[in-house]
């Protein structure tokens, strides 16, 4: 199923089911779903609304728990982890990029980039230098002390990407990362993701735009909580 069979699994889902109850009816957002995302892969996840792609992203991000099945992050089973441990795992191993950027308005660029580090008990050495470097990397080296409201949408999303990179995550989860951007800016952001992929980052990008989905290394299409299609657009890294 995977092109680089030798690569270590980063996120392994086995027989995952997530059931929502809405009054009398039962909605199976994910239905006996098994899949493994491996080190260095760049996956786009597509599917119509209600296909389960958001639920998948929430479970991958340890924001939601499955009703059945097991989910392992870098071999560590998340089933037995309590709320604190899951938070710790998010803070250390996961990076989130949202559709609406989700920056904190009362913090400046540098502070926003550092938020995930705030919640680690022992912050790594030299983390502030790393934050400055990441800001430069995404092209915001001159706007370190600006507030999010003083930035354009594309710039805000760049800050969000820098924030997702600050803890050197095992997995970057992007939810419609280009959904709110015009096409030029969207291309820039996608180029940035390509670049990260080229550096060996593991990325899962949820999107409903075919052009975005086809640009990723692999495409995973969901329907009714199950895998409908797996497509390999490109082999290897860029």
């Amino acid at each position: 199923m995977t092109t680089t069979a030798a690569a270590a699994p980063v996120a392994a889902l086995e027989h995952i089911s997530r059931v929502y109850r809405m009054g009398q009816t039962e909605v199976r957002a994910l239905d006996d779903f098994s899949f493994t995302f491996r080190q260095g892969e760049y996956w786009a996840v597509m599917g119509s609304s209600g296909s389960g792609k958001s639920t998948l992203l929430n479970i991958l991000g340890c924001l939601d728990r499955p009703n059945e099945g097991s989910y392992k992050v870098r071999g560590e089973d998340t089933q037995d982890l309590d709320d604190d441990a899951l938070s710790e795992l998010r803070s250390r191993h996961l990076g989130f990029v949202f559709q609406n950027y989700n920056l904190l308005p009362q913090l400046n660029v540098l502070e926003n980039i550092l938020v995930p580090i705030f919640y680690q008990d022992v912050p790594p050495e030299g983390i502030e230098e790393r934050a400055v470097e990441l800001a430069r990397r995404v092209g915001l080296g001159t706007r370190l002390h600006h507030r999010p409201t003083e930035l354009s949408g594309g710039q805000q999303q760049r800050v969000a990407i820098a924030r997702a990179l600050i803890n050197d995550p095992a997995l970057i989860l992007a939810d419609e990362a280009t959904g709110n951007l015009d096409s030029t800016t969207a291309q820039e952001i996608l180029a940035l993701l390509d670049e990260l992929h080229g550096e060996g980052k593991t990325i899962v990008l949820v999107t409903h735009e075919a052009s975005v989905g086809n640009r990723a290394q692999h495409l995973l299409r969901l329907k009714d909580g199950r895998i409908e299609e797996v497509k390999h657009n490109r082999e290897g890294k860029l």
Binding site: D84, S87, R90, L104, V115, P116
Partner: peptide
């Protein structure tokens, strides 16, 4: 957002 970025309760 804070919870997603790793804030504990």
């Amino acid at each position: 957002i804070r919870r997603a970025l790793g804030a504990k309760r």
